[in-house]
Amino acid sequence: MTLLNIGLIGVLGLLGVGFYGLLTSRNLIKVIIALQILAKAAVLALLVAGNASGQIGLGQSVAITVIVADTIVAVIGMALAIQVRRQMHTLDVVELARLRG
């Protein structure tokens, strides 16, 4: 089993875990964690892609930028979660359904 194959299995595994978490969790914090797992799958995918194509540097530089960007998204998500908890006294995403139509 080559390094690339292990990487690919890792990407698919992380994607599976991430999407499963995204679809099944009701807690907003867990949803954000699931998003982070998905983002990590993307980071790993970029590293694998860089290695597979021989553009290791390109893949890595994109991956580092992605890490920075998805940290920002996570921070904003957490900030929203704090406000949701303060204003609505719940973190259950199912209860976040006032807007309809």
Binding site: L28, L80, L99
Partner: peptide, 16 residues
């Protein structure tokens, strides 16, 4: 609350 709800929905879908 409605703005927060809109923000959360937007963030999750857009991030995916």
């Amino acid at each position: 609350p409605t703005s927060l709800e809109a923000g959360v929905k937007y963030l999750v879908q857009s991030a995916v």
